[in-house]
Structure formats: C-alpha cells, structure tokens
Amino acid sequence: MSAHLDQIRDQQRETWDRFSAGWKKWDALVLGWLAPFGHAMIRQAAIKDGDQVLDVAAGTGEPGLTVAGSIPNGRVTVTDLSERMLQVASENATNRGLANFETRICDAGALPFADVTFDAVLCRFGFMFFPDVAAAAEQLRRVAKPGARVCAAVWAAPDKNAWATTIMSTIARHVEMPKPPAGAPGLFRCAPEGMMAAVFADAGLRDIREEEVTTTMVHDTPEGYWAFMTDIAAPVVAGLGQADVVTRERIKAEVLDLAGKAVREGRVELGATATVVSGTR
C-alpha cells in the first residue's frame, strides 16, 4: 500500500476510534435502523448453520452478531480498523450470550486470513471508506471458499438518503468545505450505478446481483436527530467545526426546521437507501 493510502487508513482508524463512544451511545437506534440492509445481505449470502462467516469493517458488530445468533454450530469473525468499535461489538456479543463470535483488528486491504477460509463474507457500509476499493474486493474474494457468496452494502445516491443530506446539505450552504479529490473515501463514494458490480467483477467474482434496499431512520424529535448526527458523523462535526457560533446556531435552526417537516405520526422519519451487491467466489 502506498504512503498516501496508509495515511488514509490511519486517519480512518483515528476517526472511528474517536467516534466510538457516540456509536456505543446510539447503538440500539443504529442496529434497528440498519437491520434491513444486513438482513438483505444475509439472505443473499445464503448462510447456513455450521458456516464460517467473515464480517469486514463491522464496527459495533452487525450484521455479524445477527449471523452468529442464527448459526449456533458455525462461527463468525468480525473485523474493523478500530479497536474501540470492536470493543463495543464484543460487549454486544457477551450481552447476547454468543460464544461463536470473535473480533479481529485489521485492515480490509490486508486481511490476516488464509485463502479460501470462509463460507460467506459480508461488508456492510465499509467499502465507501476503504483507501483502495479494488484491493479490498480482492481480499474479500481471496478469503472466500469456492462457491461462497461475498456481499456488501453501500449507500445509494444522496437524493435517496435524507438521513444524511438533511444536515450535510444545510452545513454546505453555510460553510465552505474543501472539495475532496475524485475517488476519495466518503459516504456516497460508491453510489454511482453499477460501480460496485464492476468492482466485484474485476475482483473475479461471478453471478453478481444488485438489490436496492430502502428503510427509514426514525427519531422521536428533530432535536434527537441533531444529537444523533453530531455524535456519530465525523463529516458533520468537521463541518460544524468550521462555523462560528452564530452560523452554527443558524445551521441548527434550519436542520431542526427541516427535520420537523419530516415528522410523520409524531416522529421524524428520514429515508435511507443502499445498494446490496453480491457475487460468488
């Protein structure tokens, strides 16, 4: 890996470690919100009891935790760059009484596992942040057994993800943020139609399928949405950090107003859409 990619990886590790407390605080909300994407991946992976399953860039443990609960005679290994995120994953596994679950700190671009080790390989919302998307796809293919399914989820286009754009677009209207280089890690980096299918094909996977999955992020109040995003989203915190006190308050007021317009039956409901892509080793 080049020095530049090493730097990106190290920045990612530092960021996820720094925000791990926020992710732990909001873990119950996140687990419920993102569950439909994990369920779609698990279905496409055709996981069965007794399988050895790898979940890459799993953060606080999903969908690996759900998989471990469904295959008592199998085993799930989850990886992440962030030791602190994996500590939360281990706590979650303990709380659920899962003895067939283990964590491993590692880089998705250099997985420390032998070739053809796993019966299924999952990666939910990791590819957008990997320094080298192609290298990561090759690693996921490498450690999969022949016939195993490799499945990933990535965020779809911004206009399909109000959960993120409600606050990020508001910040962008008030704060001049540096434009990232083309292909730089970011939330919507893998959103272009067909991008991940091409990445999987280039990695040597076959029988590639794509499925669009949509769900809703729900908060009790607009203020709850603001608190959540400012606790867990590094780009939000970075953007607000560029604003003076008056501008920050103006941003907050506009975000609360927009979130208020998304209230349905007394709760804030914001759309979230991702592409689930899978291929066979």
Rank of each mutant, 00 (worst) to 15 (best):
M1D: 07
A3T: 05
L5W: 03
D6Q: 14
Q7M: 08
I8L: 15
Q11H: 14
R18S: 07
A21S: 14
W26V: 01
A28D: 11
W33G: 03
G38F: 04
H39E: 15
A40L: 01
T60N: 09
E62T: 08
P63T: 01
T66V: 02
A68Q: 06
G69W: 05
S70C: 09
P72N: 02
N73R: 15
V76L: 10
T77K: 08
T79N: 03
L81Y: 05
L86S: 09
V88N: 08
A89I: 11
G97S: 12
N100P: 05
F101K: 13
R104Q: 11
A108E: 05
G109S: 08
L111I: 04
V116I: 02
T117A: 12
F118M: 10
L122G: 02
R124K: 10
F125G: 10
M128D: 02
F129V: 05
A134C: 08
A134T: 10
A135Y: 00
E138H: 05
Q139M: 11
Q139N: 12
R141V: 03
A144M: 05
K145N: 04
K145T: 02
P146Q: 10
R149T: 02
V150S: 02
C151A: 14
A153M: 02
V154Q: 13
W155M: 06
P158I: 07
N161W: 14
A162Q: 13
I171K: 07
E176L: 06
A182I: 04
G186T: 12
F188L: 02
C190I: 01
P192C: 03
P192K: 13
E193Y: 08
E193S: 13
A197D: 09
A198C: 03
A201E: 14
A201P: 01
D202G: 13
D207M: 04
E211L: 15
T214L: 10
M217I: 07
H219I: 02
D220T: 03
E223L: 11
G224A: 13
A227S: 13
F228C: 12
D231M: 14
I232Y: 06
G239V: 08
L240R: 02
A243W: 14
V245D: 15
V246C: 03
I251F: 05
I251L: 14
A259S: 13
A259F: 03
G260N: 06
K261R: 09
A262Y: 06
V263H: 05
E265D: 15
R267F: 00
V268W: 11
E269L: 00
L270R: 10
L270G: 03
G271Y: 06
T273F: 10
T280S: 10
